[in-house]
Amino acid sequence: MRRARVVAAIGHAVPWAIAVVYFFAVPSDLDFGTQVMIWILFAMSLDLALGYAGILTLGQAAFFGLGAYTAGLFAIHLSPDPLLGHLAAIGVTMLVGALTGAMILHTTGVTLLMLTLAIVSVLSQYANQATDLTGGDNGLQGIRLDPIFGVFEFNIFGKTAYFYALVVLFGWFVLARRIVHSPFGRSLDGIRQNPHRMRAIGTPVWWRLLAIYTISAAMAGSAGALSAHATRFVGLSVLDLLTSGTVTVALILGGTRRLYGGFIGATIYLVVQDYSAKISPFFWEFVVGGLLIATVLLLEGGLLDFGPAVLRLRDRWQAGQRR
């Protein structure tokens, strides 16, 4: 029992240790590490809505993009303070998450999926047309940021952005863990499995879904704000349907309902993309596609299930040997 707890504690420390080691080991490519953490946060936000609560959505890019544009526009027009801009992005995405959630969460299945697609398409078209505000196809440029706490400056080496992303990711992770292990989080598990039964034991299902959808939106918006701050640029692609698709692939690749699924999935996705694109620009999609097919066919719980799956195979093989 105690040993299991020590192993678990080490397991929890591993991703954060890797993040710190990466900072010192690969100082030349901190931007890549920052991108990975942003996508981990983005995937984690989807895990709350899709993985835990079973809200079928392909509209997560709406909140990522909205967060990015809010943070960018805030820096340009209101204040260059990155933390204020980040909070503004979280506030706006929470508000939009709550409003759109209230409109669509009484539906389920394909209807819900289509509505989430519609929301991201509307926002994307708006951003495309409102060139005065967003820069349209050229993207939002000229974002300047004050140093964080007046001390840590954003520069081309990306040290500040890296630690900024790491701290934000850690904060959201701690919150997400508390949420999913709380009775509220457990009730989301119940709602995913059987909403009728949850109603019959007195759970206001719609309100619970709205609450987690809003939190998930805020988390995705926070990831978008990190992206805008780290690159000092927001392109139309943040609101692309493909962005929703990519984060879904990353989450499913890593495994849903573990919170850590996004850690593995987003990392593998970006690393594979980076390396295979160096070999051939057309090759990486083939590799990611193949990996996804293999994962969903062979590993029920995503890549996080790889270890346990190997152990199961070994046990079966040993049982065969004994016979």
């Binding site: 009775p183 457990r186 598990d189 499995q193 039964r197 034991i201």
Partner: peptide
């Protein structure tokens, strides 16, 4: 209609 992924305690906690 027991929630299969929840423990006995958690099944009770969500209904309390």
């Amino acid at each position: 209609e027991i929630f299969s992924s929840l423990t006995v305690m958690e099944n009770l906690a969500v209904a309390a």
